[in-house]
Simulated assay, not measured.
Amino acid sequence: MRNVDTPTPLRPERANPSAFQQRLSRWNHRRLQPAVPHADWATDAQEDAEMILIEGAWVERLRAEAQPWLADLPEDPARFVDWFEALQGAGPGENDPLFPWLAEEADLGQMRWFLQQEVAGEAGFDDLVAMAQVKMPDRPKLELARNYWDEMGRGNMGGMHGPMLGKLADHLRLTPTIEGTVWPSLALGNVLVAFSTTRRYAYHALGALGVVELTAPWRAGHVAAGLKRLGVGPERKYYALHATLDVEHSRTWNDEVLTPLAQDHPETIRSLAEGAVIRMMAGAACFDAYRDHLWGPQMEARSA
Rank of each mutant, 00 (worst) to 15 (best):
R2F: 12
P7C: 07
R11T: 14
R23E: 15
R26H: 11
L32H: 05
L32I: 06
Q33T: 15
V36E: 15
D44P: 01
A45W: 07
I52Q: 15
E55L: 14
A57P: 05
L62Q: 12
L62K: 08
R63I: 10
A64C: 08
D72H: 06
E75R: 12
Q88W: 05
A90V: 08
P92W: 01
P97Y: 02
A103K: 03
Q110I: 03
Q116D: 15
Q117N: 09
D126Y: 05
L128S: 10
Q133N: 02
V134R: 12
V134E: 12
M136N: 03
M136P: 01
L144H: 02
L144E: 08
P163H: 07
L168H: 06
L174S: 06
T175I: 04
P176R: 11
T181Y: 07
V193L: 13
T198G: 04
V211I: 13
G221E: 08
V223M: 14
A225N: 04
R229V: 10
R229I: 10
G233P: 01
K237I: 13
T244L: 10
E248L: 09
S250G: 12
W253H: 11
D255M: 08
D255N: 10
L258W: 06
Q263M: 06
D264E: 15
H265T: 14
Y290M: 13
L294Y: 01
G296S: 03
